[in-house]
C-alpha cells in the first residue's frame, strides 16, 4: 500500500503545493479603497460613541434619582420617627 509509487505521488503533490510562485504585478501597489467607506466607518463609530455616551448619561441620571430618593427616604424616616417620639413624650 505504502510502496514507492505512493511515496512518489505524495512527493510530487508536496512539491507542487510548496512550489515558489511569483506574486502578481500589482502585489506591492497601494490599494485604494473608496472614500465613502471611510466616511461610513467614521460615522458608524461616531454614532456608536454618541449612543454609548447618551446611554451612560441616562444610567447616571437614574442612579442620581435613586440616590436622591434613598437619601430623602432615610431623612424622612428619621424625622418621622422623631416626631412620633415627641408626640409620645408630650402625652
Amino acid at each position: 500500500m505504502d510502496g514507492p509509487e505512493e511515496m512518489d505521488w505524495l512527493e510530487e503533490e508536496l512539491k507542487r503545493a510548496l512550489a515558489r510562485e511569483m506574486p502578481p504585478r500589482d502585489f506591492a501597489a497601494p490599494r485604494r479603497r473608496p472614500a465613502w467607506r471611510a466616511w461610513v466607518a467614521a460615522a458608524a463609530c461616531l454614532a456608536a460613541s454618541a449612543g454609548t455616551a447618551i446611554g451612560y448619561r441616562q444610567y447616571q441620571g437614574r442612579e442620581a434619582r435613586r440616590e436622591l430618593k434613598l437619601a430623602l427616604d432615610i431623612a424622612a424616616a428619621k424625622t418621622s420617627r422623631i416626631q412620633t417620639q415627641l408626640r409620645e413624650f408630650s402625652r
Partner: peptide, 27 residues
Amino acid sequence: LTIVNIAGSIDLASLSEMGGHFNIPKI
C-alpha cells in the same frame, strides 16, 4: 447610627410626610 446633613433650607414637616413613600430598600 444615621447621620444626615441637608444643606440649604428644607421644610422638615414636608420631609417627614414623605417617610417610606418611595419603597426603596433601606435600613
